[in-house]
Amino acid sequence: MNGYSLKKDAAEIRKLTIRAMASAGYGHIGGSMSVCDALAALYGGVMHVDPSDPDMPDRDRLVLSKGHCGPALYAALAYKGYFPAEELATLNANGTLLPSHCDRLKTRGVDISTGSLGQGLSLASGVAYGCRMRGYASKVFCIVGDGELQEGQNWEAIQFIAHHRLDNLILIVDNNKRQLDGYTEEICAQQNLADKFMSFGLKVFLCCGHDPEAIFRTLEQAKEAGAPSAVILDTEKGKGCVFAEIPGFNHYMVIDKTMAEAACREIDRRLSDE
């Protein structure tokens, strides 16, 4: 693992995501940007996967429960080599294999379909339980948003995961502190997420969500935790895309190619300043 290399990976995933959304003319930019550094770490070495063999039985698996951020996952998959990056331009086009929300029947490398918030963690628990019964060493990562944790099904799933000691499951929270209608704190506050997870029986790790090297290290620790774990990533909604780094509404934005190219230039400029 190389810190600069992961930062560069994250920058490339951001640029691919922004350009794909510009092809569609719109997208869930805020939450897609906040999760790019985690995706860079996951596909940059944390996950045991092989893009030439996406069905490899003992692979690690990812459930992007915040399914509306599919475009960021597609960018990471294309960057990793699951399919040509040119395909990203078909995002949401009629008949596309890359729909807004993740679809395992359409997209190479997507393990589980998501989109109705709160369902991914239960699915991930079934995958993790199944991996354990099959005797695979596989790890299962599940990314949820902090707003998504308002859905009660997550807490059903967490009770189950803790009870069955699914230590091959790692819950990742993209804690960008915002949801569609505004700040999570103002809409329905989560109180202390780490305390909640700990009292439910998970081992908790906290990490800056925009330092891919730190995320990499933390996820490696979580893999060896010997207990089901939650990694809470401190993130910012819209991070890294200059026109989305605003305090106002950035959940879903109209994006044209000029905006996209300016944002990509800014990403390159920031990377060269590192």
Binding site: S122, L123, S125, G126, Y129, G130, R134, Q153, Q159, F160
Partner: peptide
């Protein structure tokens, strides 16, 4: 596998098991 009183989770859990080739 008895999930406890959580039908929504139980159904989702079944989906995950199915993706691993099991027949819940």
């Amino acid at each position: 596998i008895n999930c406890g009183i959580m039908e929504a989770h139980a159904v989702g859990f079944c989906g995950g098991l199915s993706s691993m080739g099991y027949i819940p």
